[in-house]
Design a protein around this nucleic acid. Structure first.
Lengths: 339, 339
DNA sequence: ACTTATTATGTAAGCGCTTGCATTTAACTA
DNA sequence: TAGTTAAATGCAAGCGCTTACATAATAAGT
């Protein structure tokens, strides 16, 4: 029950005595309207604080200039930077961004997709590759323009802008091994339904396989919370042979583990090395500061936006621009010891 | 240029041989439709992956079941938690949330407000009280249902769910003073156009005025970045008499300052005390962990959602439920010394 | 069997906007 | 001055949906 009903084109039309068509044109392509009329219309629009009705417009144009993004969570900084960059590019193209979050739950993601599309999103940005057949079918059936971010694979049928989680997982593990560590353990995010978490671990395993001197003592899965990572750490520490380095699937996990080492009186990195993944703000703040893998958040956001805008503008040509791989870099700070 | 044009009610209607009205009813109030018809319709809807067109619906109903929130930034965790809670409540009422961010810029906020409303938002959640007359007039003129969060004042004409920044500023300052500090300094956020930052400082000043033994050696404003806070710290440290405690307007600022003390070789809290504000994740992670003011983020988000839903449901009664004050609490950790 | 509720469906008007086409008006040309 | 062209505006259809109202089908009451 909205108070005053909104002012419509028709209202303005009556007031200044022109047709709604003219006003519409004045708003959308001012040059098609004669100077004096334009002035009058613009004044009226300004005075009345007129806003075009989105629904009406969407109906008439059959597009909304809106695109949607669904991220797993807003709760930590993981996606914020990328999203911000995404948004910036979009809004400088006059496109509005709708954001939904899925709580890492494929069903919620599906619902959000429906919701956003139903809201009129012309296209979508999604995180990661893996999703249920149902979801994929849906995207396909409606041929929804979309781009995947935070992941990269040559296989993907969709446009994708991101980095290869497996490769990066391998890189950090090799880096650890190169520092002389042989007894490794992993704290991973929940892998089920999360290809990023999954692939990072695979990469780590790749590295270990390739370096026979090194051995993987254990993998513990943890939710993205300090507490849960801390528990995982203790679990790993209790294995018969103690690892010298713990590779974590995200900074949140690494920090959770690190915090627990403090209370356990374990010296990092002297007695135990810990690495993170993502390079969020948190990583710069701990003592010692966290050695981690930096992912090109901003860049991903920006490029993803461009790719999507492109697709929207030109239609779904299976062009080559729709697949962009970015690189991650290892940031050496203080939690990885050279043995 | 969307590939396949979307399926419409009419399409389904043709396929199963009923009128669009029936289908519409079947979707919106299933009980009004006879069992067998309903089944058939539901199947078709499912099979075709039909989604109602938002625009059409908005037009016909004159409401969208969508509400908008505009926060200053997505970039740090400041608002994420509250927003998440806000979203949770909304979606359990079948309302979609649209999020915009303003970069702490009143003009961008205004544009976002227009954008969200134009998108059909039935109501808004905004952060803080202070905004240009233009914006206030706009909200008023269109009688936009809205709720303000992250602030509280009895004076506000709008619905408001939050805490009194001034009171909280005073509380933390008094706490510092009670620990025996007399030489204080402040690192504040940019106060211009930001009543939260402004009021926190005012509160601190209140406390100092009320305790004549204490003295305010300086106030430095800083953007919400580590770097900028670090610079502010050095500036304050260079004053002729050195403060024993620095009260910061936010955790980001406090952490930025704290980090600089590390590189400066200043021992916190032995040589210098630092307090934060907000109690974001960051605060638990530094060494020593940050003494700060916890704000009831989740609670604010939840209540703000309820208030807004209420207003939307019942119209703008100037009832008393529209003004909720929550309390902040001081979290004592390791950066405040007892002198 | 015949009226009277009740329930299920269809009809059609409109929500506010855009846009192809028709019309008017103004500006030139010859 | 009549004839042609270009520019500015109006007309009206239609985008997909909801909903009051009308109608048809069914069940209930006498």
């Amino acid at each position: 029950m909205r108070g005053t009903s909104r002012t419509s084109l028709e209202d303005i039309a009556k007031i200044i005595g022109v047709s709604t068509a003219t006003i519409s044109r004045c708003i959308n392509s001012p040059h098609k309207v004669a100077e004096p009329t334009r002035k009058r219309i613009q004044k009226a629009v300004e005075d009345l604080g007129y806003m075009p009705h989105f629904g009406g417009r969407a109906l008439a144009r059959n597009r909304t200039n809106t695109i949607g993004a669904i991220i797993p969570t807003m709760d930590n900084a993981m996606f914020a930077g990328g999203l911000q960059a995404f948004q910036d590019v979009l809004s400088s193209s006059g496109v509005t961004l709708l954001v939904g979050s899925s709580n890492y739950d494929p069903n919620q993601e599906f619902e959000q997709i429906r919701a956003l599309l139903s809201q009129g999103a012309d296209g979508l940005m999604l995180i990661g590759e893996e999703r249920p057949a149902k979801t994929r079918k849906f995207l396909d059936q409606h041929s929804i323009p979309h781009v995947l971010a935070w992941c990269y694979s040559d296989a993907s049928a969709s446009a994708v802008v991101g980095f290869d989680n497996r490769k990066s997982g391998r890189a950090i593990a090799e880096h650890v091994i190169n520092q002389g560590h042989t007894k490794l353990a992993v704290i991973a995010g929940i892998r089920h339904g999360n290809d990023r978490a999954e692939n990072r671990v695979k990469g780590i395993e790749d590295a270990i396989e390739a370096n026979p001197s090194s051995i993987l003592l254990g993998i513990a899965e943890a939710k993205y919370s300090f507490e849960s990572a801390a528990t995982a750490l203790e679990y790993l520490l209790n294995s018969p042979t103690r690892p010298t380095a713990i590779i974590c699937g995200s900074d949140v996990l690494a920090v959770g583990a690190l915090l627990r080492t403090h209370s356990l009186g374990i010296k990092v990195p002297d007695e135990l090395s810990i690495t993170g993944f993502d390079d969020i703000t948190l990583a710069q703040v701990t003592s010692p500061r966290l050695t981690t893998v930096r992912i090109p958040q901003k860049e991903m956001g920006r490029q993803a936006a461009n790719v999507l805008l492109n697709i929207l503008a030109e239609g779904q040509k299976p062009g080559q621009l729709n697949r962009i791989e970015l690189e991650t870099t290892i940031i050496d700070r203080g939690t990885l010891a050279r043995l």
